[in-house]
């Protein structure tokens, strides 16, 4: 979900209307970013610190430790390395991000000045370029090619998960647990539970590895659980991002499905080998 979009329900209206809603909601590319943000609200005196998780020309998604009243937000400042970039702002949506132990809020910029729009444009461009290069050159999505890696970068969000924290549990399908993930930094441990307390550690994933995503690509729960083996940063391709791809870039969506399904087959093969040793 970008900062300025409402949750997408592709089946709630006719197919064409739903497609139009999905495409309109993604009119501007939004890219996974990670820098400090200060939120100013009428509800509290000083600024509330947060971290940007994705950024577009129209708004920003911010992770904060606590919830706040969306309606009271009136200003946001992006704390960039070289300067602070303030905007009039409006809160749009809020969601719990359990794996991050934080709340995510979508904040839309209100009538930004032309010079700030240019600055945002450059920021989004630079972040998309950097992430696109990572996905293209070092990740399991590299087979998609440069154009598609860039497209993925432009619908992504960053997620920080502290060491030892669950990313999703086994058999998970819940919103937030259902994304396709790419390890950006750190390590992720995949595990499978045969019964209460009877758990095997399947694999440790390095940066560039793809995991999860079965709920949104196949409508079925993830087979295994995932937890952060170290402090980890993930590129998160959410259900709404994938819905956008299905409508706007169906071939890319299908290739993403192919990668997720292939990864899944590999995991099943590993698990069957473990299971065979128990018979």
């Amino acid at each position: 979900m970008s900062a300025v979009e409402a949750p997408i329900e592709p089946h709630s209206t006719g197919l064409i209307e739903a497609a139009a809603v999905v495409i309109e909601a993604r009119a501007a590319p939004r890219v996974a970013v990670d820098f400090p943000v200060e939120i100013y609200s009428t509800g509290f005196e000083g600024p509330l610190p947060g971290h940007a998780r994705d950024l577009s020309v129209g708004g920003v998604c911010v992770a904060t430790r606590s919830m706040f009243a969306l309606r009271s937000v009136h200003r946001v400042a992006l704390e960039l390395p070289d300067r602070s970039l303030p905007f009039k702002a409006e809160g749009r949506w809020q969601a719990d991000s359990s794996s991050e132990e934080s709340f995510l809020s979508g904040i839309a910029f209100q009538a930004p000045e032309e010079s700030n729009v240019s600055r945002l444009w450059d920021l989004v461009h630079a972040a998309g370029k950097t992430l696109g290069l990572f996905l293209y050159s070092t990740s399991e999505l590299s087979e998609l090619g440069a154009d598609d890696a860039t497209s993925i970068a432009q619908i992504s969000r960053l997620r920080r998960v502290p060491s030892g924290r669950s990313i999703y549990p086994q058999d998970a399908c819940r919103p937030g647990d259902d994304s396709i993930f790419v390890v950006r930094s750190g390590r992720v441990n995949l595990r499978y539970r045969f019964g209460p307390g009877d758990e095997v550690s399947l694999l440790e994933l390095d940066p560039g590895s793809v995991f999860g995503g079965l709920p949104i690509t196949a409508g079925t729960p993830n087979l295994e659980s995932a937890l952060a083996a170290t402090d980890t940063t993930l590129v998160d391709i959410s259900r709404s991002s994938f819905t956008y791809l299905r409508v706007a870039k169906p071939l890319l969506a299908q290739r993403l499905v192919q990668i997720v399904a292939r990864t899944h087959v590999r995991r099943v093969r590993q698990l069957l080998a473990v299971a065979a040793r128990r018979r």
Partner: peptide
């Protein structure tokens, strides 16, 4: 694609 993967899973 979704059905094939879901059924296999």
């Amino acid at each position: 694609s979704e059905a094939v993967t879901r059924v296999y899973g």
